[in-house]
Amino acid sequence: MNKYQATIEELILPAGIHLNGTEAFDIQVYDDRFYNHVLRYGSLGLGESYMNGWWDCLALDHFLFQLLNIDIEKQISKSLKVRWQTLKAYLFNMQTIAKSVSVAHEHYDLGNDLFEAMLDKHMMYSCGYWEKAKTLDEAQEDKLELICRKLKLTQGMEVLDIGCGWGGFAQYASEKYQVKVTGVTISSQQAEMARHRCYGLSVDILLQDYRLLTGYYDRIVSIGMFEHVGYKNYRTYMQLVKNCLKDDGIFLLHCIGGNENNINTDAWINKYIFPGGMIPSVEQLGKSIDQLLILQDWHNFGLYYDRTLMEWLNRFRASWGNLKYSYSERFYRMWEYYLSLSAASFRARKNHLWQIILTKPSFSQLYQSVR
């Protein structure tokens, strides 16, 4: 065993993991370049070496969960490349309109075939609600119903959906609650499918950045979009919500939240999955709404995201026989690693899923929470 192998073994041993061990969560190393790459680049190197096929693991999600539990990343010095990523996030707005459109093209425009194979019938790319659900379809429909009840929708209301995705919420709310929905996305493929799904309904789908929105709405909802806003734009986002919300309106924010005040995301996620993405903390959200909006309810069901992601992973793997003609084997390993890492982060309680209810100071009712 060389010094690099010995160092890696020493780092992972507190997590109960062994190199080339016999447990399902032990990793099998096939290329010695793995060791130096991980020690040099940390989480970026670990993910890249998996994509390269330099190592494998039968229980990838459990292996990553074990590492997150011991904060392995903090024990490996970050490369200059990773430090530059943090400095850029501090100095510059990494989520300008132009950059946001570029991210949407890189991730959400990968191909609707991929997301149709992985997601539920409503095409919800966010955490399901598993309190009573037995299937992914049920969990996502229960989530949609929970959101509608928290928004206290009634017939004829005008609803703004910031980051409408493939139109799942717009379709559900319009059909069941007879509300008019304006959805906004910066993904052309999402907009195309959303318009098709909502054809004939009282739904308008706009292909534009949220910062260009105008109008006045009874309700505003944002499901799984705030992670792309960036800390330099949090206040701008909340100011826009306040400007567009009627005096007795209700805003529901459904987003991933973190434990720390970070200004960027994991280096591997940033490079390969969500460039410029950022998970807000309680403190950062608090500052963004200070003297703008009133907190009415805060609901955390982050453990449900673990199950949701594993359902997506299983469906992705099961559909690979058809998808492999459009995507490479390296993409398969990248996507498998992304879903496994994300599930592990919620399982380890590093990330959470928050549904937050906010109103304007002029809100005149007593808001009663819904679970």
Rank of each mutant, 00 (worst) to 15 (best):
H228W: 08
V241T: 01
N243R: 13
V241D: 01
I220P: 00
L213S: 05
L212W: 07
K246G: 12
K242A: 13
L253P: 12
S202R: 12
L245M: 07
D248L: 03
R211L: 08
N233T: 09
R211F: 05
L201W: 10
C244Q: 08
Q239G: 07
Y237G: 00
D209E: 03
D204S: 13
Q208K: 15
G215M: 12
I223S: 07
L201G: 07
I250E: 01
L201E: 06
N243F: 05
L213H: 08
H228D: 11
N233Q: 09
Y237Q: 02
D247C: 03
N243C: 08
I250Q: 00
S222I: 08
L252V: 13
Y210C: 06
V229N: 02
L201V: 09
L206E: 13
G230F: 09
L245I: 04
L212T: 15
G230L: 08
R211A: 14
L201T: 12
R219Y: 13
K242V: 01
C244T: 04
Y234K: 09
R219D: 14
L253C: 12
T236V: 11
L245F: 04
C244N: 06
N243Q: 14
T236G: 11
M238R: 08
N243K: 14
S202I: 02
H254F: 09
G230M: 06
M238V: 03
L213C: 06
H254T: 07
